[in-house]
C-alpha cells in the first residue's frame, strides 16, 4: 500500500459517505481544534497573575489594590482571543452554516476544518496580552499614582497585539459564511 494507495483509500471512502455527514464530522474536529487557542490566554493570564503577586509583595501598602485591578483589566482583555475561538466553536457546533450550503462535500468539510485551524492563532495574542498585563501590573505596583497612564498604554498595546487574532477570526468567518471555494 504505497502512498498513492493510501491517498486513493482516503479519498475513496470520502466519496461514498453522505456529504452532509462528512461536513458535520469535520466540523466536530474543527470545533475541537479551535479550542486549542486556549493555550495563549492560559499562559498570558498566568504570567499576569504571577507579576501581580510579585507587585503586591514589593509594595503591599498602597500597591496591592491597583496592581490587582490592573491585572484583572489586562487579563480581561487577554481573554478576548479565548472568547473568539469559543464563539467560532459554538458557531460551528450549534449554527453550522456549511451544512445546507450547496457545494462539493469535501470542500465544505475542509472549510469547517480550516476555520477551526485558523483560530489556533489565538495563542499569540493570548500570551502577548498577558505579558503586557503582567508588566503593567508590576509597573503599577511600583508607581501606583501613574495607574491611569499605565492602563491607557497597556490597553493601546494590547489592542495592537490583538490584530493577528482578529485576522484569524476574519479568515475563519470567511471560510464559514462566504463560500469562496466554489
Amino acid at each position: 500500500m504505497d502512498v498513492q494507495g493510501i491517498i486513493d483509500f482516503l479519498i475513496g471512502w470520502m466519496e461514498n459517505v453522505d456529504p452532509k455527514a462528512l461536513v458535520l464530522a469535520f466540523s466536530a474536529i474543527g470545533a475541537g481544534i479551535a479550542m486549542i487557542a486556549g493555550i495563549g490566554p492560559g499562559i498570558g493570564q498566568g504570567f499576569a497573575a504571577g507579576k501581580a503577586a510579585e507587585a503586591v509583595s514589593k509594595n503591599p501598602e498602597e500597591g496591592a489594590r491597583p496592581a490587582t485591578i490592573v491585572m484583572l483589566l489586562g487579563s480581561a482583555v487577554a481573554e478576548t482571543s479565548g472568547i473568539f475561538s469559543l464563539v467560532i466553536a459554538v458557531i460551528i457546533l450549534f449554527a453550522n452554516p456549511l451544512v445546507n450550503k450547496e457545494g462539493v462535500g469535501i470542500v465544505l468539510a475542509a472549510s469547517a476544518l480550516g476555520a477551526g485551524l485558523s483560530m489556533v492563532a489565538g495563542i499569540g495574542p493570548g500570551i502577548g496580552q498577558g505579558y503586557a498585563a503582567g508588566k503593567s501590573a508590576e509597573a503599577v505596583g511600583k508607581r501606583p499614582k501613574l495607574q491611569s497612564m499605565i492602563v491607557r498604554t497597556m490597553l493601546l498595546g494590547q489592542a495592537i497585539a490583538q490584530t493577528t487574532g482578529i485576522y484569524a477570526l476574519i479568515v475563519a468567518l470567511i471560510l464559514l459564511f462566504v463560500n469562496v471555494l466554489k
Binding site: 480581561a76 482583555v77 478576548t80 472568547i83 469559543l86 490583538q162
Partner: peptide, 24 residues
C-alpha cells in the same frame, strides 16, 4: 473609545466578554 477611536469594537467586545467569562 479608550485610547483611540479605531479601538471601539475591541472595547465593546471586551465589555461583552466579561459576563461570558464570568458565567462560564
Amino acid at each position: 473609545t479608550e485610547p483611540m477611536w479605531p479601538l471601539t469594537p475591541l472595547n465593546v467586545i471586551g465589555e461583552l466578554a466579561n459576563p461570558v467569562s464570568l458565567s462560564f
